[in-house]
């Protein structure tokens, strides 16, 4: 008897999941008893079906869910804040560089506070920046080690509590708890990593800000720029 295997292909999943009508079931079973190809299809489908249930669902690693989804914020009164920022920056620069504006016979002359003053300022700024950088480094190390230490203490406490509670429990229960602890430990690790990344980010931003400031005060040819590698 010829078989186009259509009936089996069409309904195989529903058949496996017991979702077919009794009439259809009878038809399918008749086909299965007659056609070896259809039998093979059924067996293979059943295997895939079982496989799909054996799949161990993996948790998604941490990722940034909105980096691409950020809509530009609505701009409102921006010119005002930029304007005031520009004005105050200009005022600061004028003071720093001892700007002199003289009006005389030849028109308006604009001059800065002389080379000597400039060198002094540069020296001062570099010294300040070096101190600031080493302070930042120290703080960063401190924050990091404190975070790690706290994490360890917490993990150990948790473990101790669990062990206390479960001392008299059966072996199986302990194993279950250990699994929990293991994944908690993993979660904790992720938290520490995140904090580390956060602190590192801040550090980079600080350094960038310093560099910008540094360049903006016109420190040509100086090698005192602060590196971003951690």
């Amino acid at each position: 008897m010829l078989c186009d295997h259509q009936l089996i292909i069409d309904h195989i999943n529903d058949y496996i999941e017991n979702k077919v009508s009794p009439e259809l079931r009878t038809q399918i079973e008749a086909k299965l008893s007659q056609c070896t190809d259809c039998q093979a299809t059924y067996r293979q489908s059943l295997e895939l079906y079982q496989m799909s249930h054996e799949w161990q669902s993996q948790t998604v690693p941490e990722w940034h869910r909105t980096s691409y989804a950020v809509r530009p914020p609505i701009k409102r009164n921006n010119w005002l804040s930029w304007g005031s920022l520009a004005t105050s920056s200009l005022a600061i620069l004028m003071v720093v560089f001892q700007l002199e504006i003289n009006s005389g016979d030849t028109g308006i002359t604009i001059s800065f506070g002389g080379n000597q003053a400039k060198a002094q300022i540069e020296e001062m700024v570099s010294a300040q920046l070096v101190t600031y950088k080493s302070d930042q480094d120290k703080q960063f190390q401190l924050k990091l080690s404190t975070a790690l230490e706290q994490q360890n203490v917490r993990t150990n406490l948790r473990l101790a509590n669990w062990l206390e509670k479960n001392r008299d429990e059966r072996q199986q229960d302990i194993k279950f708890v250990m699994t929990g602890w293991q994944s908690q430990r993993y979660e904790d690790q992720k938290v520490v990593d995140k904090r580390f990344a956060y602190i590192a980010d801040n550090q980079i931003e600080n350094n960038q800000a310093i560099n910008q400031l540094f360049h903006s005060v016109g420190n040509e040819g100086s090698s005192n720029s602060i590196s971003n590698d951690l």
Partner: peptide, 10 residues
């Protein structure tokens, strides 16, 4: 495609 896949997997 499903039929071919099942055959191949056998």
């Amino acid at each position: 495609r499903l039929y071919a896949a099942l055959n191949k997997l056998k």
